[in-house]
Design a protein around this nucleic acid. Structure first.
Lengths: 151, 151
DNA sequence: TCTTGACCTAAAGTTAGGTTTAGAAATTAC
DNA sequence: GTAATTTCTAAACCTAACTTTAGGTCAAGA
């Protein structure tokens, strides 16, 4: 009954809205590290509610789980994170989000130009420098909408 | 050799930068419909280069393949699409993109507020009304960063 | 105590968007 | 005419982020 007994996984699930299976999965991905009670069941700190909420927010921002793990590694390991700790690692998120907004805005403006001329041929298209998450799998520059350089 | 013989799948792949396997996959998803030559091989119209380029652009915008299929269904089926046709279906893309940018911007501003107060507790967080693509899989509202309504 | 609900692990299944493989047939190049 | 290249189909495989299932254990309450 003491606070030190920690939260069971079901309680943590109810507090975060996550599925129990998702929380176990996050543990397997190194995002959260519970301890075990005498019977071998997972027990969590109250601060882990905040930690999982952060994971959910970062996911909304488009970070992958490995990326989130990286960001979380910026938290102190030897004590419960303070509001200031959370604030500091959130700065990186803000930068990530700014970049995503910027990419999409460039993409939109490019489409506007193409709609404007009515041809949709984009030799200067933002797709040549696409979003970080997409691409890098293609082979060299692509000539879009049917316009090759040699005609 | 006549134009009417169409493009083989390899030629289309070179013109679009897509893998041959991807083009076949898009056909299976109903995004493109080649005809077959006497030997059973796929043959494509030159206009299909443009069609596939549109698919790639729409993907950059975050549309799923079923969504793209839906958008493409706005093209005339009985003739080669004109620049005006492409312009018309692009308007929907523009709206989609605007909405995504708007969502991300709200998310960012919300994070700013939370960084500002240093607590990262977001009862009014944009995550309650998240991006269209994410969520809808959760069960009811989530109380983020450890703050439940009842305390 | 007994029973019910919560929890455990490991493995398989799921969706999206493809790629890879295998073996055969068509096409192209010389 | 033959060799090399492309293309064909079907099915298996891949990653991310989880969920589901199966069979068994732990914890809490009447």
């Amino acid at each position: 009954m003491a606070v030190s007994e920690g939260l069971a996984i079901g309680a943590l699930a109810r507090r975060t809205g996550l599925a129990v299976s998702a929380i176990r999965y996050y543990e397997a991905q190194g995002l959260i590290t519970p301890w075990r009670n005498a019977g071998g069941q997972r027990r969590y700190q109250r601060a882990d509610i905040r930690r999982l909420s952060f994971v959910m927010i970062a996911q909304q921002f488009g970070l992958s789980l490995p990326e989130i793990r990286q960001v979380l590694s910026g938290l102190p390991g030897n004590r419960t994170p303070t509001p200031q700790d959370w604030k500091e690692i959130s700065v990186g998120l803000r930068a990530h989000l700014d970049q995503r907004i910027d990419t999409l805005t460039r993409l939109r403006d490019n489409l506007d130009g193409c709609i404007g001329c009515g041809c949709l041929s984009l030799p200067k298209c933002a797709l040549y420098n696409p979003d970080d998450r997409a691409k890098s799998k293609g082979s060299g520059p692509r000539y879009l909408m049917g316009d090759t350089p040699e005609g």
